[in-house]
């Protein structure tokens, strides 16, 4: 085990996979000479050269399209998005090509493509650099969607993503890059998709949280514990596939659930999680499932307002008490 930052864990997995598999390569804006705005590709160009760590023009649709072609013809590209907000310029390539090609070829083609980058609040980057994009990729059939919340998960899930033969949307969080924990040194350490992590055991209420919200849910759980409410905190880790079983097992015990994410609440991924809980776990529920998500507005520039728009520890705390009728 080595203690690593989330961003370094990502960098190291990319390097290890590139060493063991010559078909893996990286493309994106400012990833070569600069090593990425957040350091996730630092020094990779020195080791692997300009052919395998390629700086692209500022043209997202162009390099996503190029990556799709490379993936179809035997390579395993990792496409780096400086900010995931920029995927909107490449949506046709992603939704009409990447998501659909395996289907259109009747399964005869594989598309081992990883689209990775960071999203979310935390730096006051304002409306077009602080968004959460997962809802646009969970609904279109064809993508797998991962959202790691810790350094170790980032490493284990990214390795699974790179070795997968389907397109994967790998959603990191800018405010988690500096967080660190022990990460296994095993160059084959991988975490399977579709396996949620129970971050904290509890018997009174289940809090399901993604990405940055996992930490806030754990903080809320500590505060709740002081008031006699023991919250179980579950991190789905991947939204597609989604581990409903682990959530249901928890709700069978607690009878209550809060779903929290940073993305906008309306038509956000929390609606699906809450719906599946309702459909499959109706008998267990003692209270309506409560969803928390960002308010329906553009993400603001001010750091203070950022936190007023997305759910905070207090909001999660309140919602958990609400479903416990306390």
């Amino acid at each position: 085990m080595s203690r690593k930052k989330y961003s370094v864990a990502i960098r190291d997995v990319i390097a290890e996979e590139m060493r063991s598999d010559p078909s893996v390569f990286v493309m994106g804006e400012d990833i070569g000479a600069l090593g990425g705005v957040f350091g996730c590709t630092r020094d990779l160009q020195k080791e692997f050269g300009k052919n395998r760590v390629r700086d692209t023009p500022i043209a997202e649709a162009g390099y996503v399209g190029t990556g799709i072609g490379a993936a179809l013809t035997g390579m395993r590209p990792i496409l780096d998005f400086m900010y995931l907000d920029f995927v909107y310029v490449a949506m046709d390539q992603l939704l009409n090509q990447a998501a659909k090609l395996r289907y259109m070829y009747g399964g005869r083609a594989t598309l081992p493509l990883v689209v990775r980058g960071q999203q979310g609040i935390g730096r006051g980057n304002a409306g077009t650099h602080s968004q959460s994009v997962e809802a646009f990729f969970t609904h279109i059939p064809g993508f797998k969607v991962a959202m790691p919340s810790t350094a170790s998960d980032a490493a284990g899930l990214l390795r699974t993503a790179i070795r997968d033969n389907n397109p994967v949307m790998f959603i990191e969080h800018k405010a988690l890059y500096a967080s660190s924990e022990e990460v296994p040194d095993d160059p084959n350490f991988a975490i399977p998709f579709g396996k949620a992590a129970v971050r904290r055991q509890g018997k009174d209420v289940t809090i399901i949280a993604t990405s940055l919200m996992v930490g806030r849910a754990l903080e809320a759980a500590e505060a709740l514990s002081k008031e006699g409410i023991e919250a179980e905190v579950i991190d789905p880790r991947t939204l597609l596939p989604l581990d409903l079983d682990t959530m249901l097992k928890s709700i069978e015990k607690t009878g209550r659930a809060v779903v929290v994410h940073e993305a906008h609440k309306n038509n956000g991924v929390g609606a699906e999680i809450a719906s599946q809980i309702m459909e499959a776990g109706f008998k267990f529920l003692d209270a309506p499932v409560v969803r928390l998500g960002a308010k329906a507005c553009t993400l603001p520039f001010s750091l203070v307002l950022e936190n007023a728009v997305v759910p905070g520890v207090d909001d999660i705390h309140e919602a958990a008490k609400q479903v416990c009728y306390k």
Binding site: H139, P141, A271, E272, A274, S275, M278
Partner: peptide
Amino acid sequence: GPESYGPGAEVLTTVIDEAFL
């Protein structure tokens, strides 16, 4: 359209909010 993460989920959660009991 497809079920997963689709518009039906928002309608269902509206039902939870408005009429659970």
